[in-house]
Amino acid sequence: MKMKVILSSILVSLVVLFLTAAYADNLSKDIFVSNAWVQAMPPSQTTTAEYMTIANNSSREAILVSVSSDIAGATEIHQMSDMKGMMNMAQVSNVHIPALGKVTLQPGGFHVMLINLKKPVNQGDKVIITLHFQDGSDVIVNALAKKDQPEDSLSMAGMKM
């Protein structure tokens, strides 16, 4: 009887250990989002953009495949690129964040498009968006709506030319 209890305990411990390991394998605990902000827009505008820095502290590449938000009818990832004085915008299917690296979504580069807004995005509003990664992990981001963009976020550095 005693043996059975010991064996069961070992089995339970193993299951717990396995589940913990599986959870630890999820990328979400290694993804850190900073400086998340949304361009505040006048009330009649139904589209805006969200920016942030996504840091990946894991030893694996993280691939952002989609984004969702209750505030928008559709949410997409787009990339701007300045081609000889012409600003081009294109939808992209994913953003790769290298292992132990980071990617900054900023004006003139990558951004999350919030399309068909269900309510105006005013300065000071908090906009909640969820990042969905290829491995199935989700990261919730709280972005602050700002009317004026920080000057240091305006750099075109690192853009696809």
Partner: peptide, 10 residues
């Protein structure tokens, strides 16, 4: 959504 607000706020 991007370059116009960026330019106007600048």
């Amino acid at each position: 959504p991007d370059v116009c607000p960026m330019t106007l706020s600048k």
